Simulated scan of single mutants.
Amino acid sequence: MNEPVRLPQVPKSYRCGPVTMIPRGGRWHFRYQLGNERKLRTTREPLKNRARAEQVALDAYDAAKLRARGEEPEPRLHQAVDLWIRANALAKSRSHIENIETFGRKHLNHLADLRLTQLTTAQVEDARRIFMETHAASSANQWLTYLRLICHWAIRRKMIRAMPFDVAELKVKRVRKPLLPKEKVSVWLAEVDALTEHEPSLGLVLRLEIGLGLRGSEARQARWEWLDIERRTYTPGDTKGGEAWARPVPEWLLAELQRIAKPLGWMVPGLAGTPVSLSRVQRIIDAACKAIGIPRFTAHRLRATYATWLADEGVPLHTIKNALGHKDIRTTEGYLQVDMRGVAEAQKRIAIKTGMSGIKSGNPTRTHRD
């Protein structure tokens, strides 16, 4: 005889604290009452995820209670990241939003399901230790910056009252990073042009970074309507900090832009008609550097190169800060590299003026008695 087929038992509805859990259509739903209102919601969780469904229902009930009192509910960290992105999608630059999305998708580790007030110093330090197993100390500091950003935003939204953790940034030894040498600019650009003959917009991206000090994303997403040819200025409309500084366009770059200027649209579209990717731009940089025998540098170092050139020409630091669109002058200081050749020349001039060089008016003089 065939044994009867046993169907899996569907659990009945039951109370879980202030909510009633209800199995329906293969998923868990829940019901609760606040005042005179009764609410029925779905957890979207399948029946096998009973514990998870209960947590979703209790979280929703707690949030509803807070909203009824005119307060914001305290989210879990992954939820706070999503809420921040939703709130700032139009106010922040595309690259900044992408960085926060990556942070929330890949690097929250065991912090993801913790409520913000559960982000203790010990929890954050442990998560950072895990992050540093595959990343450098400087990247760990950036990771901490993003975590603080989310928590500070939650404080302003009154989701939490104060920063829940106190973790200091790691001390990172500053390493001199390569720049594009001044004496190699023309030959480097000639090599770039040869490499991008099939797609000149790739070369124009690099010229925008060198000539205007734009961030990589700002150069790749440049638009014609932001260029004012009559005033010889360019005002990027999608920047990391939301600033709208009009940058003066140098003559050599303006001449190139005038030849191909359009009323509107992407300034440097790729073959597909959309902005080129960072990886494609970086491949061109790498190939050009290798061809002329200079150290490889990243696309962002062209922005630092621009800042350092301005400093070498005597432009004040606060002016360079505005030219780069920085909000904190300490960020600008981190971009600059001292040209030691300029320091050596200045030392010679100081020595002559102070009489310590043994040279006066171009003639050698004795500095001691024979």
Rank of each mutant, 00 (worst) to 15 (best):
Arg6Gln: 14
Gln9Thr: 13
Ser13Met: 05
Cys16His: 09
Met21Ser: 02
Pro23Met: 01
Trp28Phe: 09
Glu54His: 05
Asp59Tyr: 13
Ala68Phe: 08
Ala68His: 12
Glu72Ile: 06
Glu72His: 11
Glu72Thr: 12
Lys92Gly: 00
Ile97Trp: 06
Asn99Gly: 10
Ile100Met: 15
Phe103Lys: 07
Arg105Val: 00
Leu108Gln: 07
His110Gln: 12
Thr117Asn: 07
Val124Leu: 03
Ala127Lys: 04
Glu133Ala: 08
His135Tyr: 08
Ala136Asn: 11
Ser139Ala: 10
Gln142Trp: 03
Trp143Ala: 05
Trp143Met: 07
Leu144Tyr: 01
Leu144Ser: 06
Tyr146Arg: 07
Leu149Trp: 04
Leu149Asn: 02
Ile150Leu: 09
Ile155Asp: 03
Lys158Met: 07
Arg161Ser: 08
Glu169Leu: 13
Val172Ser: 10
Arg176Ser: 15
Leu179Val: 05
Lys184Pro: 03
Val185Pro: 04
Ala190Glu: 14
Asp193Ile: 01
Glu199Val: 14
Gly203Leu: 04
Leu208Ile: 08
Leu214Arg: 10
Ser217Tyr: 01
Arg232Asn: 13
Gly237Val: 00
Trp245Met: 12
Ala261Trp: 03
Leu264Gly: 13
Met267Val: 04
Ile285Lys: 03
Ala299Asp: 06
Glu313Leu: 13
Pro316Cys: 02
Ile329Met: 11
Val338Glu: 14
Val338Ala: 11
Val343His: 08
Arg349Pro: 00
Ile350Ala: 04
Thr354Glu: 14
Gly358Asp: 05
His368Asn: 11
